[in-house]
Design a protein around this nucleic acid. Structure first.
Lengths: 151, 151
DNA sequence: ACAGGATGGTTCAAATCTGAACAACAAGTA
DNA sequence: TACTTGTTGTTCAGATTTGAACCATCCTGT
């Protein structure tokens, strides 16, 4: 810990821009989803992941890993979505400990209704402002970090 | 809302990678700061901003904008940091409504003590994994989005 | 078969975040 | 001066997140 490697200007600029932008964008998305559908961003992401999954269902732990929230946060949100009728819990046939989160028809319809407005925000502030090259560089850069963080 | 522009593969890959990575990195940083100094990431960012500011002080609203948190969240955190002796509140000479958050000596020492470990994480998972080009592309890309989001 | 250790999900308390409501002050206008 | 409008920071209630503690179940090696 004696020889600290500080960030030079290029590195610091990149890190600061990444940090601010991710927080700003998160806030904007949260605002849009709340206004349009009363959903939080994690809730929306849960619906998306389930819609993409085979049989529209997923194990709790796997889902938590995908959405990047703690197990307890997922338990809370699934309970919440269950009360809203968008998701159901089912017992896992292969593992008695397991719980499956299943997207309901209402959940799917909700997602289809909300997705356009959400994607419009993602486009308006991020995707549509970047060139093809920038998009690709971002993917490779982020993927390297993601892989490292997932061990 | 009738003609939805979905994301193609390149766009979706970039967006998903960005989203997951920002959340994963946030979690990792939070974990490191908590273990090393009992600080949250927002708290650390507050210290950084104050250390960079003239006279190591800043108006509450300006600080909230910089760190990207709500005004009430900043009030909460400044109160917290004040109790820890890292920050003080001062009255603003030019505006009787205003409050200045001022970094104390202890706050500065705390920051200097914590920064190396924090930067090591930022390096290990992000900065050191990217090429010079990737860093620069990321800065321009993120800056475009940031500017748009700050209106 | 069974002990020992890993894994899955929930519960709980504590911390934090947000938005709305509020009070005090600022700044411009008639 | 008096009015109106906008800004600043705090308070408050409610929602959400996290990590630790916990129990049930799985799995491996003996």
């Amino acid at each position: 810990m004696t020889d600290t490697r500080w960030l030079d200007d290029t590195e610091m600029a990149a890190w600061r821009a990444f940090l601010s932008t991710s927080h700003l964008l998160e806030r904007r998305i949260e605002e849009q989803l709340k206004a349009a559908a009363g959903l939080t961003h994690p809730q929306y992401e849960i619906l998306v992941r389930l819609a993409d999954a085979p049989d529209r269902q997923m194990r709790m732990t796997e889902l938590a890993r995908g959405v990047v929230v703690s197990k307890s946060a997922l338990t809370y949100q699934i309970t919440r979505l269950e009360k809203a009728g968008l998701v159901e819990r089912a017992t896992c046939p292969s593992d008695d400990r397991g719980v499956l989160a299943v997207l309901t028809e209402a959940g799917l319809r909700c997602l289809e209704r909300v997705a356009p407005g959400h994607l419009a925000v993602v486009r308006a502030y991020l995707v549509d402002r970047l060139t093809r090259d920038e998009l690709e560089v971002m993917t490779t850069a982020m993927s390297k970090t993601e892989r490292a963080l997932r061990e």
